[in-house]
């Protein structure tokens, strides 16, 4: 009991409970006007409050679906049909996951390569960084359709355009982090390598790279979460290929609010799982590198 109170479980549960309660209250408030209209059409008058509340929780296309409606949609979406069926949320999550991982991989690689150039080359140091920062000030929502449509025009569709958008977002935290990370070695450590007459490659492999591993993982945690956002935004620009973004899009076309919320939660859960996986990778690396537990 003491462990429970001392840990994070109880506070987190209390906050969760508060959110769910608030959500139900808001569901009643926001769905009430439409329910009034419906009841008016059906000539139902003086509906008791409890019954009215239940009515607002069971609409087909509510303004705000109740939590249990969303949970139900997630459940049937994940387990209600074969994983290969286009109705399956798992199917769409898989498509988004593929683009996310590919884009994350490319983005991390690009970020590391750019950081290495910036740290080792004076000209890159002065010329690249402003452009890298400028790249992130352009709204991705504006760029994504251009990439998807543009590449589609030359016959590149499906995974690649979405992965490119993920890459565009995820290289940024990696390059910013790794520029700092590769510069963490102290002068005394660099002097030491100089007394050994170590080559620049040796200095990189034996000093700069291992010194920057903690920052690499921190950057990758940010990078993988925004990779998922990039993939979803890419899917919003083209509803042909499937994916969680497409579910969001078709949901909003058809007023399928429950579907939108279900896709939204799946995307959030996916991001959380990916960040946790990167965190495990970090722990593994820490153990190998003797970081104090």
């Amino acid at each position: 009991m003491r462990g429970l109170m001392g840990g994070k479980t109880v506070p987190v549960l209390i906050v969760l409970l508060a959110i769910v309660l608030f959500w139900y209250v808001m569901a009643i408030v926001m769905n009430a006007p439409w329910q009034d209209t419906l009841n008016g059409r059906a000539n139902l008058t003086n509906v008791p409050f409890t019954e009215f509340a239940l009515q607002t929780f069971t609409q087909d296309k509510p303004v705000l679906p109740a939590p249990h409606q969303v949970v139900g949609a997630i459940w049937t979406g994940l387990f209600g049909s074969a994983i290969t069926a286009p109705r399956s949320l798992a199917f769409h999550a898989g498509i988004t996951l593929g683009a996310t991982l590919l884009g994350f991989g490319m983005g991390t690689l690009l970020g590391v390569v750019l950081a290495v150039m910036i740290v080792h080359n004076n000209a890159s140091d002065r010329s690249l960084m402003p452009w890298i920062i400028a790249s992130q000030t352009v709204p991705i929502l504006a760029i994504a359709p251009m990439v998807v449509v543009g590449l589609g025009a030359v016959g590149v569709t499906g995974l690649i355009p979405k992965a490119l958008i993920s890459m565009y977002l995820s290289f940024f935290p990696v390059v910013v982090g790794m520029v700092k990370g590769l510069r963490t070695p102290e002068q005394i450590q660099l002097d030491l390598m100089r007394t050994y007459n170590a080559s620049p490659l040796q200095v990189f492999l034996k000093l700069r790279w291992p010194a920057s591993v903690p920052i690499l993982f921190a950057s990758m945690k940010v990078g993988i979460a925004i990779s998922l956002i990039g993939a979803v935004v890419g899917e919003l620009s083209n509803n042909a290929g499937g994916g969680l973004g497409v579910r969001l899009l078709t949901g909003s076309y058809n007023g399928q609010t429950i579907q939108i919320w279900a896709a939204l939660f799946i995307a959030a859960a996916l991001a959380a799982i990916l960040v946790i996986l990167v965190g495990w990778g970090e722990k593994l690396a820490n153990r190998r590198m003797g970081v104090r537990a």
């Binding site: 102290e186 005394i188 002097d191 030491l192 390598m193 050994y196 034996k206």
Partner: peptide
Amino acid sequence: RSYGYVFQAPALFPWRTIENNVALPLEI
């Protein structure tokens, strides 16, 4: 490589064990 230098601070690489730190110049 005709001298060994010992600095004011140990300047050991924290991600290497003691034997791997000693191995550093040998690897290089």
